[in-house]
Simulated assay, not measured.
Amino acid sequence: MNQPYIIKKGDMALQPCHLAIGQYEGTRVLRYKEDEDVIKERTHKIIDRSCRFYGSSYVFKKEDTIRITGISSKPPILFTPLFPTYFFPTHSDRKTQNTWINIHYVQSIRSLKDKKCRVNFVDNQSIIVSISAHSMHHQYLNGIYYYYMMDRAARVATFDPESPIDYTKPQLNIYEALAKYSLFESK
Rank of each mutant, 00 (worst) to 15 (best):
L82I: 07
L82Q: 11
F83C: 06
P84T: 05
P84K: 11
Y86V: 12
F88K: 03
P89A: 07
P89L: 08
P89K: 09
H91L: 09
H91M: 06
H91P: 03
S92G: 00
D93A: 06
D93H: 04
R94N: 07
R94V: 00
K95G: 00
T96E: 11
Q97N: 03
Q97I: 05
T99Y: 00
T99G: 02
W100D: 04
N102Y: 00
I103H: 00
V106Y: 02
Q107A: 08
R110G: 01
S111E: 09
D114C: 10
K116I: 05
V119K: 04
V119W: 06
D123F: 08
N124V: 07
Q125D: 12
Q125T: 15
I127L: 14
S132L: 08
H134K: 12
M136A: 13
H137R: 10
H138A: 02
Q139W: 01
Q139H: 12
Y140K: 05
L141V: 03
N142P: 01
I144W: 05
Y145L: 14
Y147W: 15
Y148C: 15
M149Y: 09
M150Q: 14
D151K: 15
R152C: 08
A153C: 03
A154R: 13
R155W: 02
V156L: 13
V156T: 06
A157Y: 01
A157R: 10
T158V: 11
T158W: 02
F159A: 11
F159V: 05
D160I: 05
D160T: 11
S163F: 11
S163V: 15
P164G: 10
T168R: 15
Q171M: 14
Q171Y: 15
Q171I: 15
N173C: 12
I174V: 11
I174E: 12
Y175W: 10
L178F: 07
K180P: 00
S182I: 00
